[in-house]
Protein backbone atom coordinates (compact mmCIF):
# COMPACT_ATOMS: atom_id res chain seq x y z
CA UNK A 1 0.00 0.00 0.00
CA UNK A 2 1.17 3.49 -0.82
CA UNK A 3 -0.36 6.68 0.51
CA UNK A 4 -1.42 8.83 -2.40
CA UNK A 5 -3.46 11.96 -2.90
CA UNK A 6 -6.67 11.53 -4.81
CA UNK A 7 -5.23 13.47 -7.76
CA UNK A 8 -2.12 11.29 -7.77
CA UNK A 9 -4.16 8.11 -7.74
CA UNK A 10 -6.07 9.26 -10.82
CA UNK A 11 -2.86 10.31 -12.50
CA UNK A 12 -1.17 6.99 -11.79
CA UNK A 13 -4.09 5.17 -13.35
CA UNK A 14 -3.98 7.36 -16.47
CA UNK A 15 -0.20 7.04 -16.62
CA UNK A 16 -0.29 3.25 -16.37
CA UNK A 17 -2.95 2.97 -19.04
CA UNK A 18 -1.15 5.39 -21.35
CA UNK A 19 2.04 3.40 -21.12
CA UNK A 20 0.16 0.17 -21.62
CA UNK A 21 -1.85 1.26 -24.65
CA UNK A 22 -0.67 3.80 -27.19
CA UNK A 23 -4.21 4.44 -28.35
CA UNK A 24 -4.96 6.20 -25.06
CA UNK A 25 -4.52 9.97 -25.08
CA UNK A 26 -5.82 12.80 -22.93
CA UNK A 27 -7.15 16.19 -23.93
CA UNK A 28 -8.84 19.09 -22.21
CA UNK A 29 -8.44 22.68 -21.09
CA UNK A 30 -5.06 23.33 -19.46
CA UNK A 31 -4.20 19.64 -19.20
CA UNK A 32 -0.77 19.89 -20.86
CA UNK A 33 1.42 22.94 -20.38
CA UNK A 34 -0.36 24.13 -17.24
CA UNK A 35 -0.23 20.57 -15.89
CA UNK A 36 -3.96 20.51 -15.26
CA UNK A 37 -6.20 23.11 -13.62
CA UNK A 38 -6.21 20.85 -10.56
CA UNK A 39 -2.86 19.20 -11.31
CA UNK A 40 -4.33 15.80 -12.08
CA UNK A 41 -2.28 15.58 -15.28
CA UNK A 42 0.93 16.94 -13.76
CA UNK A 43 4.01 15.53 -15.50
CA UNK A 44 2.10 13.68 -18.22
CA UNK A 45 3.13 16.14 -20.94
CA UNK A 46 6.79 15.65 -20.04
CA UNK A 47 6.39 11.92 -20.16
CA UNK A 48 4.15 11.44 -23.20
CA UNK A 49 4.70 14.63 -25.16
CA UNK A 50 2.43 16.86 -27.18
CA UNK A 51 1.24 13.95 -29.26
CA UNK A 52 -0.80 12.42 -26.47
CA UNK A 53 -1.33 15.16 -23.90
CA UNK A 54 -3.25 17.89 -25.62
CA UNK A 55 -4.43 21.35 -24.60
CA UNK A 56 -7.79 22.32 -26.05
CA UNK A 57 -9.48 25.68 -26.52
CA UNK A 58 -12.58 26.38 -24.41
CA UNK A 59 -14.74 24.46 -26.87
CA UNK A 60 -16.39 21.74 -24.81
CA UNK A 61 -18.89 20.72 -27.45
CA UNK A 62 -16.17 20.58 -30.07
CA UNK A 63 -13.54 18.61 -28.23
CA UNK A 64 -15.99 16.20 -26.61
CA UNK A 65 -17.37 15.38 -30.04
CA UNK A 66 -13.89 15.17 -31.48
CA UNK A 67 -13.19 12.61 -28.79
CA UNK A 68 -16.26 10.64 -29.82
CA UNK A 69 -15.07 10.55 -33.43
CA UNK A 70 -11.55 9.57 -32.43
CA UNK A 71 -12.97 6.76 -30.30
CA UNK A 72 -15.14 5.52 -33.16
CA UNK A 73 -12.05 5.55 -35.34
CA UNK A 74 -9.95 3.35 -33.08
CA UNK A 75 -8.46 5.56 -30.38
CA UNK A 76 -9.24 5.59 -26.65
CA UNK A 77 -9.64 9.22 -25.63
CA UNK A 78 -9.75 10.56 -22.10
CA UNK A 79 -11.58 13.88 -22.24
CA UNK A 80 -11.08 16.09 -19.21
CA UNK A 81 -13.69 18.69 -18.38
CA UNK A 82 -12.46 21.38 -16.06
CA UNK A 83 -15.67 20.59 -14.21
CA UNK A 84 -18.81 18.70 -15.19
CA UNK A 85 -20.65 22.01 -15.01
CA UNK A 86 -18.93 22.88 -18.28
CA UNK A 87 -19.68 19.46 -19.77
CA UNK A 88 -23.25 20.74 -20.02
CA UNK A 89 -22.08 22.49 -23.18
CA UNK A 90 -20.94 19.10 -24.49
CA UNK A 91 -24.12 17.28 -23.47
CA UNK A 92 -25.22 16.87 -27.08
CA UNK A 93 -22.11 14.85 -27.85
CA UNK A 94 -22.34 12.78 -24.68
CA UNK A 95 -26.07 12.16 -24.70
CA UNK A 96 -27.00 12.22 -28.38
CA UNK A 97 -23.87 10.75 -29.85
CA UNK A 98 -21.52 8.82 -27.55
CA UNK A 99 -24.37 6.83 -26.01
CA UNK A 100 -26.26 6.16 -29.22
CA UNK A 101 -23.83 5.64 -32.05
CA UNK A 102 -23.31 1.93 -31.48
CA UNK A 103 -27.04 1.28 -31.29
CA UNK A 104 -27.99 3.44 -34.26
CA UNK A 105 -25.39 1.81 -36.48
CA UNK A 106 -26.55 -1.64 -35.53
CA UNK A 107 -23.34 -2.28 -33.65
CA UNK A 108 -20.96 -1.17 -36.38
CA UNK A 109 -19.15 1.51 -34.39
CA UNK A 110 -17.94 1.41 -30.80
CA UNK A 111 -17.24 4.44 -28.66
CA UNK A 112 -14.62 3.64 -26.02
CA UNK A 113 -14.19 7.04 -24.37
CA UNK A 114 -13.78 8.39 -20.84
CA UNK A 115 -15.19 11.77 -19.94
CA UNK A 116 -13.75 12.85 -16.60
CA UNK A 117 -13.51 15.81 -14.25
CA UNK A 118 -14.79 17.19 -10.98
CA UNK A 119 -18.49 16.95 -10.19
CA UNK A 120 -20.80 18.78 -7.78
CA UNK A 121 -20.05 21.76 -5.57
CA UNK A 122 -16.65 22.94 -4.40
CA UNK A 123 -17.39 25.66 -1.90
CA UNK A 124 -18.80 29.07 -2.69
CA UNK A 125 -18.56 29.00 -6.47
CA UNK A 126 -22.11 30.03 -7.12
CA UNK A 127 -25.06 28.66 -9.03
CA UNK A 128 -23.35 27.69 -12.30
CA UNK A 129 -20.38 25.87 -10.78
CA UNK A 130 -21.99 23.66 -8.15
CA UNK A 131 -24.20 21.05 -9.75
CA UNK A 132 -23.94 17.27 -9.26
CA UNK A 133 -24.57 15.60 -12.60
CA UNK A 134 -24.09 11.89 -11.92
CA UNK A 135 -27.79 11.06 -11.51
CA UNK A 136 -28.72 13.06 -14.57
CA UNK A 137 -26.33 11.18 -16.83
CA UNK A 138 -27.30 7.86 -15.28
CA UNK A 139 -30.76 8.49 -16.72
CA UNK A 140 -29.49 7.88 -20.22
CA UNK A 141 -29.05 4.37 -21.58
CA UNK A 142 -25.60 3.61 -22.91
CA UNK A 143 -23.50 5.31 -20.27
CA UNK A 144 -21.57 4.00 -17.29
CA UNK A 145 -21.31 6.55 -14.51
CA UNK A 146 -18.68 6.46 -11.79
CA UNK A 147 -18.34 8.94 -8.92
CA UNK A 148 -15.65 7.92 -6.47
CA UNK A 149 -14.83 8.97 -2.92
CA UNK A 150 -11.36 7.64 -2.14
CA UNK A 151 -7.96 7.43 -3.85
CA UNK A 152 -7.92 3.65 -3.98
CA UNK A 153 -11.30 3.48 -5.71
CA UNK A 154 -10.22 6.27 -8.02
CA UNK A 155 -7.20 4.36 -9.19
CA UNK A 156 -8.83 0.99 -9.69
CA UNK A 157 -11.94 2.36 -11.34
CA UNK A 158 -10.12 4.83 -13.57
CA UNK A 159 -8.13 1.96 -15.01
CA UNK A 160 -11.34 0.04 -15.63
CA UNK A 161 -12.95 3.08 -17.21
CA UNK A 162 -10.10 3.52 -19.66
CA UNK A 163 -10.16 -0.15 -20.62
CA UNK A 164 -13.93 -0.24 -20.97
CA UNK A 165 -15.18 -0.47 -24.55
CA UNK A 166 -18.08 1.93 -23.94
CA UNK A 167 -18.50 5.57 -23.01
CA UNK A 168 -17.79 6.05 -19.31
CA UNK A 169 -18.23 9.17 -17.19
CA UNK A 170 -15.73 9.34 -14.36
CA UNK A 171 -16.48 11.94 -11.72
CA UNK A 172 -14.15 13.44 -9.13
CA UNK A 173 -14.30 16.37 -6.75
CA UNK A 174 -12.22 19.55 -6.52
CA UNK A 175 -12.45 19.33 -2.77
CA UNK A 176 -11.17 15.77 -2.64
CA UNK A 177 -8.11 16.13 -4.90
CA UNK A 178 -5.81 16.71 -1.93
CA UNK A 179 -7.32 13.90 0.13
CA UNK A 180 -4.82 11.20 0.99
CA UNK A 181 -5.49 7.51 1.24
CA UNK A 182 -3.93 4.10 0.95
CA UNK A 183 -3.77 2.89 -2.60
CA UNK A 184 -3.01 -0.65 -3.59
CA UNK A 185 0.38 -1.07 -5.20
CA UNK A 186 -0.61 -4.37 -6.65
CA UNK A 187 0.53 -4.49 -10.26
CA UNK A 188 -2.31 -3.67 -12.56
CA UNK A 189 -4.79 -2.94 -9.78
CA UNK A 190 -8.31 -2.93 -11.19
CA UNK A 191 -11.70 -2.43 -9.55
CA UNK A 192 -14.53 -3.63 -11.75
CA UNK A 193 -17.18 -1.11 -12.75
CA UNK A 194 -20.48 -1.80 -10.99
CA UNK A 195 -19.15 -3.08 -7.71
CA UNK A 196 -19.96 -1.17 -4.54
CA UNK A 197 -18.17 -1.63 -1.25
CA UNK A 198 -19.16 -1.93 2.39
CA UNK A 199 -16.82 0.61 3.92
CA UNK A 200 -18.08 0.40 7.47
CA UNK A 201 -19.96 -2.46 8.98
CA UNK A 202 -22.90 -1.85 11.27
CA UNK A 203 -26.15 -3.46 12.26
CA UNK A 204 -28.55 -0.59 12.92
CA UNK A 205 -28.94 1.38 9.71
CA UNK A 206 -27.58 1.33 6.18
CA UNK A 207 -26.14 4.56 4.83
CA UNK A 208 -25.65 4.69 1.08
CA UNK A 209 -23.26 7.50 0.16
CA UNK A 210 -20.84 8.15 -2.69
CA UNK A 211 -18.47 10.87 -3.85
CA UNK A 212 -17.93 13.75 -1.46
CA UNK A 213 -21.00 12.75 0.56
CA UNK A 214 -19.31 9.49 1.56
CA UNK A 215 -17.01 11.46 3.85
CA UNK A 216 -19.97 13.22 5.46
CA UNK A 217 -21.56 9.83 6.06
CA UNK A 218 -18.39 8.66 7.82
CA UNK A 219 -18.46 11.71 10.07
CA UNK A 220 -22.10 11.15 10.90
CA UNK A 221 -21.51 7.45 11.57
CA UNK A 222 -18.66 8.24 13.96
CA UNK A 223 -20.89 10.64 15.88
CA UNK A 224 -23.80 8.20 15.96
CA UNK A 225 -21.53 5.42 17.23
CA UNK A 226 -21.06 7.50 20.36
CA UNK A 227 -24.81 7.16 20.94
CA UNK A 228 -24.63 3.45 20.28
CA UNK A 229 -26.07 3.58 16.77
CA UNK A 230 -23.96 1.51 14.39
CA UNK A 231 -24.22 2.51 10.75
CA UNK A 232 -23.27 0.32 7.86
CA UNK A 233 -21.88 2.49 5.08
CA UNK A 234 -22.10 1.38 1.50
CA UNK A 235 -20.26 3.34 -1.14
CA UNK A 236 -21.75 2.29 -4.47
CA UNK A 237 -18.74 3.90 -6.26
CA UNK A 238 -20.47 3.27 -9.56
CA UNK A 239 -23.81 5.01 -9.97
CA UNK A 240 -24.63 2.97 -13.05
CA UNK A 241 -24.54 0.03 -13.17
CA UNK A 242 -25.64 0.17 -9.53
CA UNK A 243 -24.61 -2.58 -7.12
CA UNK A 244 -28.16 -3.16 -5.97
CA UNK A 245 -27.41 -6.58 -4.52
CA UNK A 246 -24.96 -5.15 -2.01
CA UNK A 247 -27.41 -2.47 -0.89
CA UNK A 248 -30.32 -4.86 -0.58
CA UNK A 249 -28.28 -7.37 1.40
CA UNK A 250 -27.34 -4.67 3.85
CA UNK A 251 -30.89 -3.36 4.20
CA UNK A 252 -32.15 -6.88 4.85
CA UNK A 253 -29.72 -6.92 7.78
CA UNK A 254 -30.28 -3.42 9.20
CA UNK A 255 -33.91 -2.92 8.12
CA UNK A 256 -33.35 0.82 7.80
CA UNK A 257 -31.75 2.98 5.17
CA UNK A 258 -30.73 6.59 4.58
CA UNK A 259 -29.40 7.60 1.17
CA UNK A 260 -27.07 10.57 1.02
CA UNK A 261 -26.64 12.24 -2.35
CA UNK A 262 -25.32 15.65 -3.35
CA UNK A 263 -27.92 16.13 -6.02
CA UNK A 264 -31.28 17.84 -6.09
CA UNK A 265 -34.06 15.57 -4.89
CA UNK A 266 -36.21 15.09 -7.98
CA UNK A 267 -35.51 11.77 -9.73
CA UNK A 268 -32.00 11.52 -8.37
CA UNK A 269 -29.94 8.57 -7.22
CA UNK A 270 -31.59 8.73 -3.79
CA UNK A 271 -35.04 8.45 -5.36
CA UNK A 272 -33.90 5.51 -7.45
CA UNK A 273 -32.38 3.64 -4.54
CA UNK A 274 -35.45 4.29 -2.41
CA UNK A 275 -37.67 2.81 -5.11
CA UNK A 276 -35.43 -0.22 -5.61
CA UNK A 277 -35.29 -1.00 -1.91
CA UNK A 278 -39.08 -0.97 -1.60
CA UNK A 279 -39.26 -3.27 -4.62
CA UNK A 280 -36.58 -5.70 -3.46
CA UNK A 281 -36.79 -5.56 0.32
CA UNK A 282 -40.22 -4.20 1.21
CA UNK A 283 -40.89 -6.81 3.88
CA UNK A 284 -37.60 -6.11 5.59
CA UNK A 285 -38.10 -2.39 6.15
CA UNK A 286 -38.80 -1.12 9.66
CA UNK A 287 -38.95 2.49 8.54
CA UNK A 288 -39.38 4.41 5.29
CA UNK A 289 -36.15 4.97 3.38
CA UNK A 290 -35.05 8.58 3.89
CA UNK A 291 -32.77 10.70 1.80
CA UNK A 292 -30.43 13.57 2.55
CA UNK A 293 -29.80 15.64 -0.55
CA UNK A 294 -29.72 19.21 -1.77
CA UNK A 295 -32.81 21.35 -1.54
CA UNK A 296 -34.67 22.07 -4.75
CA UNK A 297 -32.88 25.41 -5.19
CA UNK A 298 -29.75 26.70 -6.92
CA UNK A 299 -26.43 27.04 -5.12
CA UNK A 300 -26.13 30.37 -3.31
CA UNK A 301 -22.80 32.17 -2.94
CA UNK A 302 -23.12 33.56 0.59
CA UNK A 303 -21.35 31.36 3.14
CA UNK A 304 -24.18 30.77 5.61
CA UNK A 305 -26.65 30.14 2.79
CA UNK A 306 -24.23 27.77 1.13
CA UNK A 307 -23.70 25.90 4.38
CA UNK A 308 -27.45 25.59 4.82
CA UNK A 309 -27.78 24.40 1.23
CA UNK A 310 -25.17 21.65 1.27
CA UNK A 311 -26.12 18.38 3.01
CA UNK A 312 -24.22 18.12 6.30
CA UNK A 313 -23.28 15.36 8.74
CA UNK A 314 -25.90 16.91 11.03
CA UNK A 315 -28.61 16.37 8.42
CA UNK A 316 -27.51 12.75 8.15
CA UNK A 317 -27.58 12.25 11.90
CA UNK A 318 -31.09 13.71 12.04
CA UNK A 319 -32.28 11.38 9.30
CA UNK A 320 -30.74 8.34 10.99
CA UNK A 321 -32.44 9.26 14.26
CA UNK A 322 -35.70 9.64 12.42
CA UNK A 323 -35.52 6.12 11.01
CA UNK A 324 -34.21 4.60 14.25
CA UNK A 325 -37.28 5.07 16.36
Amino acid sequence: MAVLQFREAIKHAIDEEMSRDERVFIMGEEVAEYNGAYKVTEGLLDKYGYWRVIDTPISELGFAGLGVGAAMNGLRPIVEFMTFNFAVLAADQIINHATKVKYMTGGQADCPIVFRGPNASAGQLGATHSVAYDSMYAQFPGLKVIYVSEPNDAKGLMKSAIRDHNPVLFMESEQMYGLKGEVSDEEDFIIPIGKGKIKREGSDVTLVAHGKMYHFAVKAANELAKDGIECEIIDPRTVKPLDLKLIVQSVKKTNRCVVIDEAHPFAGLAAEIGFLIQREAFDYLDAPVLRVCLPDVNAPFSKPLFDAWLPSPKNIIDAVKQVSY
Partner: peptide
Protein backbone atom coordinates in the same frame (compact mmCIF):
# COMPACT_ATOMS: atom_id res chain seq x y z
CA UNK B 1 -25.49 41.11 8.07
CA UNK B 2 -25.47 37.86 6.16
CA UNK B 3 -28.75 36.98 4.45
CA UNK B 4 -31.32 35.16 6.59
CA UNK B 5 -31.42 31.42 5.99
CA UNK B 6 -34.92 31.76 4.53
CA UNK B 7 -33.33 33.69 1.64
CA UNK B 8 -32.17 30.35 0.31
CA UNK B 9 -35.66 29.90 -1.08
CA UNK B 10 -36.28 33.40 -2.42
CA UNK B 11 -35.53 34.50 -6.00
CA UNK B 12 -36.12 31.01 -7.39
CA UNK B 13 -39.56 31.67 -8.83
CA UNK B 14 -41.71 34.72 -9.31
CA UNK B 15 -44.55 33.51 -7.08
CA UNK B 16 -44.57 34.32 -3.38
CA UNK B 17 -45.10 30.74 -2.37
CA UNK B 18 -43.62 28.50 -5.02
CA UNK B 19 -43.43 24.73 -5.11
CA UNK B 20 -40.18 23.14 -4.00
CA UNK B 21 -39.73 19.42 -4.36
CA UNK B 22 -38.65 17.64 -1.20
Amino acid sequence: PFPEESELYTDMFVEDNPYFHV
